[in-house]
């Protein structure tokens, strides 16, 4: 699980072009949106694409994303439970 969290942090930085952020700066339970990493709605779409492309998970209901993308922790838990 900790490997997956590390991998997710690296992917988030790379795919969302967070040049000013390092892996060490993203805590497992830090909020990804709002006051945390400050991601926006386009970033949310990129994360949905990433789930599909890299983990074979299609979000049937985009509203689910709100809980899934709350933090690296919640993302990793969801991926572990649903990955193809």
């Amino acid at each position: 699980m900790s490997d997956l969290k590390q991998e997710l942090k690296e992917k988030i930085i790379e795919q969302l072009n967070l040049e000013d952020v390092s892996v060490a700066e993203i805590g497992d339970t830090d909020q990804l949106f709002g006051e945390g990493l400050g991601l926006d709605s386009i970033d949310a779409l990129e994360l949905i694409v990433m789930l599909d492309k890299d983990y074979g998970i299609k979000l049937a209901d985009p509203k689910e994303g709100r809980k899934i993308f709350e933090s690296v922790d919640t993302m990793a838990t969801y991926i572990e439970a649903n990955r193809a």
Partner: peptide, 10 residues
Amino acid sequence: NDYPSPAVFV
């Protein structure tokens, strides 16, 4: 043909 990027599309 693969996964279009929303961040590029905008």
